[in-house]
Simulated scan of single mutants.
Amino acid sequence: MSLSINNNASSKVAIETLNAVQTDLSSTQNVVSTGLKVSTAADNAAAFGIAQQMQGNVSGQSAVNDGLSFAAQTVSSTASAANQIISVLQQVQQAVTSLGNSFGVDASESQIGTQINGYLAQIDTIARNATFNGVNLLAPDYNNAAVGTKLGISTSKLSYVAGLQGDVTTVTGFAASSGNGSIGKYLTSSGGSLGASSTSTLTDLLGLSTGGVAGKNPTANVFVTTDGAFGSSYVGSGVASVAKMIKQVQAAIKAMTYVTSDLGSNTNVIKSMSTYGSTISDNLTNGIGALTDADMAAASAKLTSLQTKQQLAIKSLTIANSQSQNILSMFQ
C-alpha cells in the first residue's frame, strides 16, 4: 500500500466506521433514556401505529372507569337515602298503629297526626337531598316553578358509559307513578294505594300525603287531620281504618325495599364492570409495553459495546491521520 498525502484511504474507512458507530450509539442512548425501543414511527411504523391506537383505548377506558366510579357513588348515596327512608317509614308504621290505641280520643289522634307529619317531612327532606352531582333518583319533581329552584338537581336518571365501545347504561329514577322499577309500580304490587299520578313529593307518591310541593315539606298526612279526624280514605271503617292505614304504610316500606334491591343490583353491575374495566386497562397497557418497551438489560449491554467501539474507531482514525506525518519524516 503506497503512502500518499492526497488520498488517505485508511482515514476514510476510519471516519465511515466512526460515523456508523455514532449513529448506532445515538439510537441506543435514546432507547436507554426513554425506555422505548419504538418511540417514533421511524423506529417501527407498524408497531408505533398499533401502540398509538391502543393508547387511545387506554385513555378511553380511563374515562369509562371514572364514569363507573361516579355511578357507583351515586347509587351508593341513593341506597343510603333509601335505607334511611325505610327507617323513618317504620316509625310511621309505629305511629299509625298507635292510632288504634287512641281511637276516638281526638287530642291523642291529633298529636299522633302531628308526629306523622314530622316523619313525612323527614322522608321528603331525605329524598330531596339524595343528590349526587346533580343526579337524584328519589325526588319525583326536581323542577318546580312555584318554588323557583331545582334544588341542585339536574336530572332524575343516571346514565353512564359501561364499556370501551360506548355501551351506555341508564338507571331511571324510581320516583315515578308507573314504569319498570318505579316506586308506583312497586307500591301497587305491594298492595298499597298509589298517590297522585302527577306528584311533587315522595310521600305523595307513596300515598302518605297529598298536595305536596317540590322543595317544601308536607303539612298534612292522609291518615289523620290536625283536629284528630281520620282522613277521607279511612272514614267510616271504624277501628278497621287503622288496619287499612297500616297496610298502606307496610306497602310503602315494601316498595322502598324493592328500590334498595334494585339499587343493590345496579351496584353489583357497576362493581363488576369496574373490575373488568381495570383489567382491560392493564391488558392494554401491557400490550403497548410489549410493542414499544425496550429490553433495558440488552440496551445496557449494547451501549457498553458501542462506547467501546467508539473509542476504538477514534483511536483508529487517529492512527490513520498520523500517516501523513510519517511521510514528512522521510524528508528530514
Rank of each mutant, 00 (worst) to 15 (best):
L25E: 13
L208M: 12
G238Y: 12
V161K: 14
S4R: 14
Q248H: 12
F230I: 06
K12P: 03
V32I: 13
T188M: 03
K271W: 03
G134I: 01
G173S: 09
A299M: 08
G148W: 07
G192R: 03
T226R: 15
Q61E: 06
G215H: 00
F174A: 05
A162P: 02
S281H: 04
T114K: 15
I327Q: 06
G228H: 04
T23N: 15
V259T: 10
L202Y: 00
S108D: 14
L194K: 03
V21E: 01
I15N: 09
A145W: 08
I270G: 02
T210N: 14
S39H: 11
N217A: 15
P140F: 07
T40D: 05
S209I: 05
S197L: 10
L187H: 00
T257W: 02
V135K: 02
N217P: 11
N83Y: 08
V235K: 14
A95K: 11
M330K: 07
Q53K: 13
V242Y: 02
A127H: 02
S77M: 08
I85K: 05
T257A: 08
T210Q: 14
S281V: 04
L25P: 12
M273P: 00
V242P: 05
Q61P: 07
N221Q: 09
T199Y: 00
G215Q: 05
V64T: 09
L317W: 00
K315Y: 09
Q122L: 10
Y142N: 02
G191K: 01
S305C: 03
L317R: 04
